[in-house]
Amino acid sequence: MIHICKSRGRIEIQMDAYLMGTDDVVILISGGDRPHLGTITTGTKDQPLQTTQFQQHQEFYITEEIAMNLRKHWRGNFAICGGIHIDQINREEINQLIEMVVEMGNELILKLQK
């Protein structure tokens, strides 16, 4: 398992990646006041991404961002599950959260390539 945490201000996020065999990976992104399962994005290098969004959750913005970068660098299948909820989040915090998740995704790719 690969575990990555980041925090800025009141935003705390964690990313956990679980290898399944040598080619597949499941990634869990969670944090905030009420972690949950909001969106799942799946993919592989050679097929279009598929995203399932539960209710009105908008984590697809982050799961798809990570997926688009991951598919450039990962050889196998992947599933990215995301659920971050921060009460009363403002625009600046949303931008910080997205930046943090992208940084975490880049760090994860480097660790997966080792």
Rank of each mutant, 00 (worst) to 15 (best):
V101I: 15
Q50K: 10
R10T: 07
H57K: 13
K6G: 03
N106A: 01
G38Y: 07
Y61V: 14
F78I: 12
E64S: 09
E107V: 04
F54H: 06
H36A: 08
S30D: 05
S30K: 12
Q14S: 01
G43P: 09
E103M: 04
I62W: 11
G82C: 14
I84L: 13
I11T: 03
L108S: 02
E103D: 06
V102M: 09
M20P: 00
H85L: 04
N106H: 05
Y18Q: 05
P35F: 08
D16E: 11
T41M: 11
I11Q: 07
D23R: 15
T52E: 01
E64D: 09
H3Y: 15
I86Y: 06
D24P: 10
T63A: 07
A67V: 09
A17W: 06
G21E: 11
M68S: 14
I109Q: 03
Q58N: 12
K72G: 09
T39N: 05
P35E: 05
T22L: 14
K6P: 03
R34M: 14
D33E: 01
R10C: 06
R71N: 01
V26L: 14
G43R: 12
E64P: 04
V102I: 13
I27Y: 03
N69F: 07
M100C: 02
G31K: 06
I4M: 07
Q58M: 12
I29V: 12
V102P: 01
D33T: 13
K111V: 12
